[in-house]
Design a protein around this nucleic acid. Structure first.
Length: 563
RNA sequence: GCCCCCGUAGCUCAACUGGAUAGAGCAUCGGAUUUCUAAUCCGAGGGUUGAAGGUUCAAGUCCUUCCGGGGGUACCA
């Protein structure tokens, strides 16, 4: 696909006296299929040449000559439209997809470059709730997406395992808990919630909590022992969740890991004349950079903050990975924190500060139940699986074909939840809604999974064996032409999704592909069709299945053979 | 107060990063299954893109102001 675009761009450039890159950048896709595959708008060029765009389009179309793989070049108003030759296109796209197999869509844009992605990063001692899911889902999708572009992706789980919240947790445990509660995450969470309720009535508890955290940072044995136990309980719980979600990390490097590295960064800031005392705290004034309040490195009691640990972490990561990019997949609520973080890094003189980026995402509203409790991720997954199972019971014949209906229901549930989150733009807030998040009809994860499973059904039951030498020039119906073009766009879609760090672009592309597949399904049959035509269609379907499987894998959604 | 994000069909969202007649799903209504999975498909209705200015050959997209919603704003993360 890219090859044809390049040919057209070069021809346009030659005829119009432009650089090929300029011409290629200007090439667009016409709004409707009938208009062709590519269009060149003549406005800019016409202005420079003091001619009317329509007139220029006409002469351009007339004089451009023949372009390999292009059937027709025609001027329509101020646009020059290019129509590709179906047979040549199908030949090029399908042969490449077949030859590359599961690697189809991968590129080498990022060869030799490391991209560090910080995602999920939950706070210890708090159960995973629906709000934590976004960073995990979006971050892991970006992780796999950059992998497809040839980057060496490094996924880091920056656990929130250090900080004042541990003081609070310890106070709650000491005052209202039983000793064995340190091993029970739900008990720990109840205590944590109770702490916040009590703190409203007794503000002095906050001082007590800060005192515990101070002891912890000072290396007090009891504080550290409790901290270790709480951390272990949480970690086991998180790992169970990640296994269920199919999410992986290259490193679990929590905030505590930087405990012995923060002194150095604080001293460095002082040595470079950045850190000053203010109201007892150690801060970096950023007012010259238009940022107020200042970044606080140390509280008045000498303990560290979130940003201190993030500074130490950023430096350590650069020293370890020499990254080309570092992405923080963290909620939009923390934009200000990252603004401060990146500015301080720059003031410290680190050129790689510009390689760091906050990848924000919108809030999830309404994830509380009526009782005011948050919805835990496991509840959500269980509910999704149950609903999927209920749905499956409606179709008895299909259900009988399944080996393990619980496994299918689990996969469908996860697919629904992941897609629900990934199909919308990152920055938009959304309101959590059971019926929408766990829906199986229309533009949903299961819709994509269904397209994949249907093709699997065709391959199983069509009665012929696939043949990679099939005559794909027989794929002349509008439905087939749409599918071929979509398959040809896969690599470019991956690139767009990665460079704009926006998995929803891939999600929506896969929807287009699944729509096109479903629309073809009733029209382009394989079984009991004439042999050569059946072979061509089967090959097309296999390639579509391959792209669906690949794209779904990037999004973290299982692709099933039967569902 | 100041700063950031969002505002598109009744609802949830798209729109190739400034291009041709703003598209999907849900919901509503009408149709399709002797035929490879109906978790599907085909069709219908539904819009002053929050408002007003501005830039441009061209604005849902960029700029300004206002309105509405959300978030942030020194010892939490």
């Amino acid at each position: 696909m890219h090859h044809f675009r390049k040919e057209i761009a070069e021809a346009v450039a030659r005829q119009a006296g432009l650089e090929p890159a300029q011409a290629e950048a200007a090439l667009m896709t016409p709004p409707r299929r009938e208009m062709g595959d590519y269009a060149f708008p003549c406005f800019v060029l016409a202005k420079a040449m003091k001619k009317s765009p329509a007139e220029l389009a006409k002469t351009l179309a007339r004089d451009i000559g023949s372009i390999p793989g292009v059937d027709r070049v025609e001027a329509v108003g101020p646009y020059v439209n290019f129509v590709l030759n179906d047979a040549r296109l199908a030949e090029a796209v399908l042969r490449e997809a077949v030859a590359q197999g599961a690697r189809y869509g991968q590129s080498t844009d990022g060869a030799g470059k490391v991209v560090v992605i910080d995602y999920s990063s939950p706070n210890i001692a708090k159960p995973f709730h629906v709000g934590h899911l976004r960073s995990t889902i979006i971050g892991s999708a970006l992780y796999r997406l950059f992998g497809m572009l040839g980057y060496t992706a490094v996924g880091i789980n920056h656990l929130g395992d250090w900080g004042t919240q541990f003081g609070k947790q310890i106070v709650a445990l000491k005052r209202w808990g039983r000793p064995e509660d340190v091993h029970d995450l739900m008990a720990l969470n109840r205590l944590y919630v109770q702490y916040h309720q009590e703190e409203e009535r007794q503000p002095a508890l906050a001082d007590e909590a800060r005192a515990w955290f101070r002891r912890q940072e000072a290396g007090d044995a009891e504080a550290l022992e409790l901290w270790r136990a709480i951390r272990e309980t949480s970690l086991q719980y998180f790992q169970r969740i990640y296994r269920r979600l199919g999410v992986q990390f290259d490193a679990y490097l929590g905030e505590s890991f930087y405990n012995d590295k923060m002194g150095a960064i604080v001293e460095e800031a002082a040595a470079k004349g950045l850190a000053t005392r203010s109201q007892g705290a150690l801060v970096v004034d950023l007012s010259k950079q238009g940022i107020d309040p200042p970044a606080m490195l140390q509280k008045a009691d000498g303990t560290t903050l979130y940003i201190t640990r993030d500074l130490a972490a950023a430096k350590h990561r650069y020293e370890t990975y020499a990254f080309h990019k570092m992405l923080y997949v963290v909620g939009a609520a923390q934009s200000f924190h990252f603004q401060q973080l990146f500015t301080v890094l720059k003031l410290l003189g680190y050129g790689w500060a510009d390689a760091c980026a906050h990848i924000p995402f919108g809030l999830v509203h309404g994830m509380s139940t009526r009782q005011g409790n948050v919805i835990y991720l496991e509840e959500l997954l269980d509910e999704a699986r149950q609903r999927a199972l209920a749905y499956m019971r409606q179709n008895v014949e299909k259900r009988q074909e399944l080996e393990d209906e619980n496994a299918v229901a689990e996969a469908v549930g996860i697919g629904a939840i992941f897609f629900f989150d990934l199909s919308r733009q990152r920055v938009k807030d959304y309101t959590f809604d059971w019926d929408r998040a766990v829906s199986f009809d229309g533009d949903t994860g299961p819709y994509l999974m269904n397209a994949h499973a249907r093709i699997a059904g065709i391959i199983r039951k069509c009665g012929i064996e696939p043949d990679s030498r099939a005559d794909v020039s027989l794929l002349v119906e509008p439905e087939a032409r749409v599918l071929v073009r979509l398959v040809g766009q896969y690599e470019e879609k991956l690139r767009e999704a990665a460079t704009s760090t926006e998995p929803s672009l891939l999600a929506n592309y896969l929807l287009d592909l699944a729509h096109a597949l479903h629309a073809s399904y009733y029209k382009l049959r394989v079984k009991e069709e004439e042999r050569t035509l059946a072979q061509a269609r089967l090959l097309l379907y296999m390639v579509v299945k391959q792209v669906l499987a690949s794209g779904l894998a990037v999004l973290g959604i299982p692709a099933l053979e039967r569902m």
